[in-house]
């Protein structure tokens, strides 16, 4: 479905991505991992057609990203950005945005919005001002907005940031479900490798260059982790307050 060949991205003279190549097949769940500043968000923006490659080729279903995205078949959850507290929309309005180009009658849309709000546990907030919610609550609403249009390709940039454990588990269950039932392809940038390991088909380890490409089991081997995170990984694993790393720890021990 997605073909990336020898991708280079340079911004203001800095090489952000260097010689990255990989493929995503239809119906796969792909995790993109790597340290902060490793170029994960940049990669996502290239796939969405917002950032132009300096060199190399990116094709989605044989089309260039801009043209593919225009068809409205992509769901996207941006890395958490802060929204204006005074922005005059309700939670309902925001999820409704996700259906803007579907030709359902209003009543049906309304029903769907409520269903998805219910799904992320935000139905009782439907008439609240979106800007006044907490960060995690906003993230849940944004998840509902991203998935409501039932896209063919779902791109999630750190979806679990700021949401609590229960919501995270629900969310991952949902990703599994839509992937299985509807064959939706999922690309998920995450630091929460432990929690998703059981269901990803492919791991892309990115730190400017592609440091790892393969399945999750192999990825957990010390070598792959070291290669990707360098000395940082040791530091991370021993840090008790780091939620993500506790997962790391548990999973690493298991294998």
């Amino acid at each position: 479905m997605i073909k990336i060949e020898n991708l280079y991205v340079e911004i203001n003279g800095n090489l952000i991505l260097e010689d990255v190549s990989f493929e995503v097949k239809k119906g796969e769940i792909v995790a993109v991992v790597g340290p902060n500043g490793g170029g994960k968000t940049t990669l996502v923006k290239v796939i969405l057609g917002f950032v132009q490659p300096t060199k190399g080729k990116v094709l989605i279903e044989g089309k260039n990203p801009k043209d593919y995205v225009k068809s409205g078949k992509v769901g996207y959850l941006p890395q958490k950005s802060s929204y204006d507290r005074d922005f005059p929309v309700s939670v309902f309005d925001v999820v409704m945005f996700g259906l803007i180009n579907t030709s359902l009658p209003y009543k049906e849309k309304e029903k769907k919005v409520l269903e998805y709000l219910n799904y992320v546990g935000m139905q009782q907030y439907k008439d609240y001002s979106f800007g006044k919610l907490s960060g995690g609550q906003q993230q849940r609403v944004m998840i509902a907005r991203a998935i409501i249009s039932q896209p063919e390709l779902l791109i999630l940039d750190e979806p679990s940031t700021g949401i609590d454990v229960v919501a995270q588990e629900n969310f991952y269950e949902f990703i599994k479900k839509i992937n299985k039932e509807k064959g939706i392809t999922v690309i998920m940038v995450t630091h929460d490798i432990g929690a998703i390991g059981s269901f990803v088909n492919k791991v892309v380890g990115l730190n400017r260059r592609l440091h790892y490409l393969g399945d999750f089991k192999e990825f957990l081997q010390k070598e792959a982790l070291d290669k990707l995170y360098g000395s940082e990984v040791k530091l991370l694993i021993h840090s008790p307050e780091c939620f993500t790393c506790q997962h790391f720890n548990i999973e690493v021990k298991k294998h």
Partner: peptide, 19 residues
């Protein structure tokens, strides 16, 4: 109106929704 508000809310997301 709704499209315009969507653009003001988040232009990238609006773009991806085909606007």
């Amino acid at each position: 109106l709704e499209k315009l508000m969507y653009c003001c809310f988040d232009e990238e997301l609006a773009n991806i929704s085909g606007i």
